[in-house]
Write a protein that binds this DNA or RNA. Sequence first.
DNA 1: GGTCATATTATGTATAGTCATAATGAGGGC
DNA 2: GCCCTCATTATGACTATACATAATATGACC
Lengths: 242, 242
Amino acid sequence: MSTKAATQTSLHQKILGDLESQILSGVLPPGARIATELELATAYDCSRMTVSKVLTKLAGAGLIERRRKAGTFVRRPQSQAAVLEIHDIRAEVLALGQPYRFELIERKGRRANRGDREFLGTEASGRVLDVSGRHFAGRKVFCLEERVINLTAVPDAETVNFAEISPGRWLLDTVPWTVAEHRICAMAADRAAARDLAIPAGSPCLLIERRTWRNEVPITHVRLLYPGDAHQLVAHFTPSGR
Amino acid sequence: MSTKAATQTSLHQKILGDLESQILSGVLPPGARIATELELATAYDCSRMTVSKVLTKLAGAGLIERRRKAGTFVRRPQSQAAVLEIHDIRAEVLALGQPYRFELIERKGRRANRGDREFLGTEASGRVLDVSGRHFAGRKVFCLEERVINLTAVPDAETVNFAEISPGRWLLDTVPWTVAEHRICAMAADRAAARDLAIPAGSPCLLIERRTWRNEVPITHVRLLYPGDAHQLVAHFTPSGR
DNA sequence: GGTCATATTATGTATAGTCATAATGAGGGC
DNA sequence: GCCCTCATTATGACTATACATAATATGACC
């Protein structure tokens, strides 16, 4: 149609913004039917492709639902999903303006036992590496780490000196994960944990368990224990992905 | 899997899958330059638009970075981000196969005080509504809720009977949020909380604080206290958004 | 009046081009 | 050498079109 005067914001951005704000402001309530691609295309005086791309993006962000023949509908906000950023511990400590240090407590290779098998799956007769250590922020213990590494998947781990580089950091650089599962809960520090964290036994702690895979192959299982109120996870959410 | 629909996966999906696995498997390491759109288009014998859409999607997912003239590069996995699903408490309890009940403890309107002001911002002289209650799973207390609702933004809340519908559910249906911020930490139950949760004082609890806005306007601030080990947050992550 | 085939409609995928924009690199003038 | 200009290049935005696919609406037939 019109050889558009490309101003600062692209038409794509404009349509996206318009629809987004209409949905979020309630002008288009959940369940409402949005104009068809063709109607929007004529309304904005552009081609259907442009509108289609915008709607595809909104659908990907979960704001709308598209059904062939039926049309496009505003989705009811259902399961609230928040993007939780899990930072590298070293970066997190440095961001607080404190000096970082990792201290290795123990490190030993062994055969996988019954407990590991649940994570490692059926083909579970291989060796694993136990690594535990403490992350320090200044003089205070920031977090306690207990890790099991699947040596079948990551044989190189056997020869790494984890006193120099924390296992989390090394793994992240060496074998990036493709799938991760986190479990977060509160628990009381048992005697051993209390000693390592230098807090009273029974104090509340935040436990983050993370299991990571790389292409279906289990890589590592880590338990991070943070002393109670000292640590906070912060998750931020804005709909439609940015 | 062998349904009629699955006979031909779209070219879009194929290219996306190919690139994704090449990046995740390390064939294309971080920093590596990906073939140009035109090269990929000829390689897959398709138009540049198709390749471009795939790359746009991968860029949106944060797997790659695109720079004009320079080309497209594999991004170094940086801040690990996990998608944390925060479910509706009622749905969560029902999913456990337990009967759900919400019990209102207290409800009272008042003027915003200094503590609220931090959240409500400068224009803070309005009224707020304090609501507290308990979510039950069967006979056990599932979670304790303390909420502050900004009555300036949601005047209707004043007349709702929260003994019938939990404030969280009502707000979700009435004023969907556009931005939410979560803070998660562990803390010991104080005497009042211990009484309401029917657990010993000092037991570890998981505290989730959530503040939500709708178009820059603060809506509500809620503290959810879960008895320690009873509750787990589960976050799952797969790169490139599905 | 109920069932099946068909037309219609709206989205989904893909093409082959145009023009715009940003960054790089090469050459020219001082 | 250094700065500036200009051509090159790869992505970015968009068009107009085509055909595929899924779901609904319609109508013929028994």
